[in-house]
Amino acid sequence: MAERRTRDVKPFLGKWALVAVPYLWSLLFFLAPFLIIFKISLSETAIAMPPYTPVIAGVSDLWTKLSDFTFDNYVFLTEDPLYYSAYLSSLRIALVSTVLLLIVGYPIAYGMARAPKSLRNALVMAVILPFWTSFLIRVYAWIGILKPEGLLTIALQGLGILGPNEQVHIYNTEIAVFIGIVYSYLPFMVLPLYAALEKLDATLLEAAADLGCPPTKSFWVITFPLSLPGVIAGCFLCFIPIVGEFVIPDLLGGSETLMIGKTLWAEFFNNRDWPVSSAVAVVLLIILVVPIVIFQNQQKKA
């Protein structure tokens, strides 16, 4: 009996270990950092190392210092319209950028998926290739293009579109931010779209044509609906990081480009207010996670 029992237990444990690995992973790399940030968001600033209080040294500490925690930082976020506006402005910029990305990315992905098979891998490489250069260098390159005396001005002057004393004033505006974001995130939109479009059976379009549907219409009734999983994946992959984007608006945008990433930076570095910046981060996370969860639940139901 005893021998049989051990034989039964082992595979059981093995199976559970296998199931536990992904959970352990998210616990380690998502939940633990989140809890740390959440804990800091309930603290108060102090002139100390680290610059907040209370500092929890161990589990026993947690209970004795529990009463020191406060939700004041969250209340504070509601009191100053700055945060509210920064969140809204970030969401707006992310939304506009995502729509632009979709408009720009879709034809690219479509062209790739329709290209001869022998060319497709090369085209995928071409989309990924810019990743091999530092992201910052590429954003800096846009400064060189967009600044008033930059390449764009020179090119337009050369073409006679602009007079010799006219300049393009895009740099340090929101337009430059959109250009930078669309450029930087394009592969994140194109690749999921391409994956979805490449799977699309070309005979479906033939079938549609055969049944009397002209090509432009069949794009909207067949191709686009069937690429929706790619559209959704691409939009999420772009929208979420764009909301928290910091570098691109900072480099290409003007000082009036208000985004939550910049606000968070100011809280953390200028004000050295780790608790408030943590609260900003937690709220940002909730703003992003809640709609995703709702969306996923609805997908499951559908």
Binding site: D201, T203, L204, E206, A207, A208, A209, D210, L211, G212, C213, P214, P215, I222, P225, L226
Partner: peptide
């Protein structure tokens, strides 16, 4: 005459049913 204007309809080998 493009396919969508021809009075012939086809049943495809793969059926090509619209999955959505």
């Amino acid at each position: 005459i493009p396919p969508y204007k021809r009075p012939a309809n086809m049943m495809f080998q793969s059926y090509a049913l619209f999955p959505h």
